[in-house]
Amino acid sequence: MNRNAISLPIIMSLFLKASLAVGKDDAPEVSYFADKQRGWFWYEVLPDPVKKIQPEIQVDQEKTKPDSKPPRVVEADIAPQAQTAAEPQPLSSVWLKQNLEHYLNQAIDDPSPENVAAFYYLQRVMMDKAERFTHAARYVVMSDPQLDETVRRPLATYAANEANHQASVVAEQALKAIAAQAGILFFFRSDCPYCHVQAPILAMLENAYGFKIYPVSLDGLPMPNGFFSQFKRDNGQAAMLGVEQTPALFLMKPPKQIVPLAQGALSLEEVTGRILLAAKEAGWIDATQYQTTQGIRNTPMLLPAAGSISPAVTQDPLSLIQALQRSAHLGSTP
């Protein structure tokens, strides 16, 4: 037998096994017999083996946050803060607010003599504290005219009646002074029932203080009760002044000043009160005169400007009182 014929298959099988051993971890190789024109694999430059990509571990899970601390450290930081938070003194007003309800609930759930008595004793403490504060407050207020409200408006009946009398006198004078320079613009409709009852009130205002009434009919028709029969037809004035409801009243001071009073029916007292307020806001009467018409004595008001008192001053009661008193002396009345 020819030795070459026997050895050739053996050599080929060895080469094939070697080739399979080299590429067993890669994709299956193409058989030499199917691609024999390429020659043996040692004639080629084999590509670098593909590295298997390991899944990356999320960095966010491994990295510790810059501001984070181990639990023990965090607990160690919180513990001193909890200890430094000062508890209110027992039986202080803050302590009573926090604990009185607890003692009440305890007495309701377990109404033993001790629990019920403990609640009522604490309630007695709170009431006695309130009574002590009331006495001190009355003394402080009566000793300081800036805090005593009776200086501004007396409470005694005889004094209150006198204040009301003075207010009516000054108000009448002010209203007559306003009437000498301003009139009432009265918008109405012939079919408006509220206009029908407002007209007699305006007639009283005209007779008592001398206000000139300027009636304007929105529908061009007179009122059936005969009041203000000499009226003007609306020629766009109502729309210009924003009239939406009737009766509509405006305080008018020639040549161009017009101040709204109301869009709706008012009593005589309401009309005069609004006239005085509108005149004060328009500068036709001064603030002192207006305050007197309200039955209130003219006194300095505590109106400190924003930022005029520093935070350090508010920490000392005496300094705070002095700062507020200075602002009252420098302040103006409304």
Score class of each variant (00 low, 15 high):
Tyr32Ile: 02
Pro28Arg: 08
Asp67Ile: 06
Pro111Ala: 05
Ala136Lys: 12
Asp191His: 14
Leu185Asn: 01
Gln58Pro: 03
Met126Thr: 09
Thr333Val: 10
Gln245Cys: 05
Asp77Lys: 13
Ile275His: 00
Thr134Arg: 08
Tyr32Lys: 03
Arg152Tyr: 02
Ala82Glu: 14
Glu270Val: 08
Gln181Arg: 06
Val22Lys: 06
Pro47Asn: 02
Pro254Phe: 01
Gly264His: 15
Ala21Val: 04
Gly264Gln: 10
Lys36Asp: 02
Val169Trp: 02
Ala86Asp: 09
Ile78Phe: 10
Ser19Leu: 07
Ile178Pro: 00
Thr299Lys: 00
Ser93Ala: 13
Asn2Glu: 06
Thr150Asp: 05
Pro9Phe: 06
Gly220Arg: 09
Pro70Glu: 01
Phe228Cys: 03
Ala163Tyr: 02
Glu244Ala: 12
Phe211Met: 01
Arg38Lys: 11
Arg3Asn: 11
Pro9Ile: 04
Ala136His: 14
Asn235Lys: 14
Ala137Asp: 15
Met204Val: 15
Gly331Asn: 07
Met1Leu: 11
Val45Trp: 09
Glu131Arg: 03
Asn99Gly: 14
Pro71His: 03
Tyr43Gly: 11
Arg153Gly: 07
Leu320Tyr: 05
Ala18Glu: 08
Gly295Lys: 01
Gln123Val: 15
Ser13Asn: 10
Ile108Gly: 13
Gln37Val: 08
Ile53Glu: 13
Gly210Tyr: 03
Pro80Leu: 02
Thr246Leu: 03
Arg274His: 04
Ala163Thr: 01
Pro311Asn: 04
Leu205Ala: 09
Leu266Glu: 00
Asn115Ala: 14
Ala136Leu: 15
Met127Ala: 15
Ser229Arg: 07
Val73Thr: 10
Ala238Leu: 02
Ile213Asp: 04
Asn105Glu: 11
Phe188Glu: 00
Val243Met: 06
Thr150Met: 04
Ile258Met: 04
Pro88Phe: 05
Arg3Cys: 09
Ser308His: 04
Asn164Met: 10
Lys256Ile: 01
Trp95Gln: 05
Leu175Ile: 08
Thr314Gly: 13
Pro254His: 05
Leu91Ala: 12
Thr333His: 00
His196Asn: 10
Asn4Phe: 08
Glu101Val: 15
Phe33Pro: 02
Gly307Trp: 07
Phe211Arg: 00
Ser327Met: 04
Glu114Asn: 11
Phe41His: 07
Leu122Glu: 02
